[in-house]
């Protein structure tokens, strides 16, 4: 089977079976339980929470990211197996949101990780979250959800930005 055809099967399958990582990085996580549970039931689309990054396909950045969490999120993202996708919730990962002048939250997520779908709002409503999932499925179907390829391609730039946020580039060694 040729690579392209194989790719297509992969896309069809992964669209209908998106396993998300159980990682509540911020307050957006409180709108995930309604989406998961009986009112909105995202398992209809074959989505479900997964316990560890190796098993998961989608990383949900549910809200603001502190520097400390970003370190873990990057680690988790790198442990996930491609194809992998990132959905960001709320306004904080877009431009900082409420915490635009906070000393501990990174503001623009796309400088550190490739984001496939953004959901606006504080909080995004469950309907918005569902819509984002459907949007991601559409993008996967069209072959446009390629954040992970982008991450591989511009790995140096992402790493540099991450290090700058963690404080390596500020002339100080972190972790001591």
């Amino acid at each position: 089977m040729r690579y392209e055809e194989w790719n297509k099967i992969s896309r069809i399958a992964s669209r209908k079976s998106l396993w998300m990582l159980h990682f509540c990085t911020g307050c957006g996580a409180v709108e995930l339980p309604p989406v998961m549970t009986s009112r909105y039931d995202m398992e209809r689309f074959g989505m479900g929470p997964m316990a560890t990054p190796r098993q998961a396909d989608v990383l949900l950045i549910t809200g603001y990211l502190t520097v400390k969490t970003l370190k873990r999120v990057v680690n988790v993202y790198e442990q996930m197996q491609s194809p992998k996708y990132v959905i960001s919730f709320g306004s904080c990962p877009i431009n900082g949101g409420m915490y635009w002048d906070s000393y501990n939250t990174v503001k623009r997520l796309d400088r550190y990780l490739p984001v496939d779908v953004y959901v606006g709002g504080c909080m995004p409503r469950p309907e918005g979250v569902m819509n984002a999932f459907l949007e991601l499925m559409k993008l996967i179907d069209e072959g446009k959800a390629r954040g992970w390829e982008k991450y591989q391609k511009y790995y140096e730039q992402y790493k540099r930005n991450q290090k700058m946020a963690f404080g390596f580039e500020r002339g100080k060694n972190e972790g001591d």
Binding site: T52, P53, R54, N75, Q79, G175
Partner: peptide, 12 residues
């Protein structure tokens, strides 16, 4: 070392 540690990086 690149293992599941509930998100914690081993290097820290």
């Amino acid at each position: 070392k690149d293992n599941f540690l509930a998100g914690e990086p081993y290097e820290i």
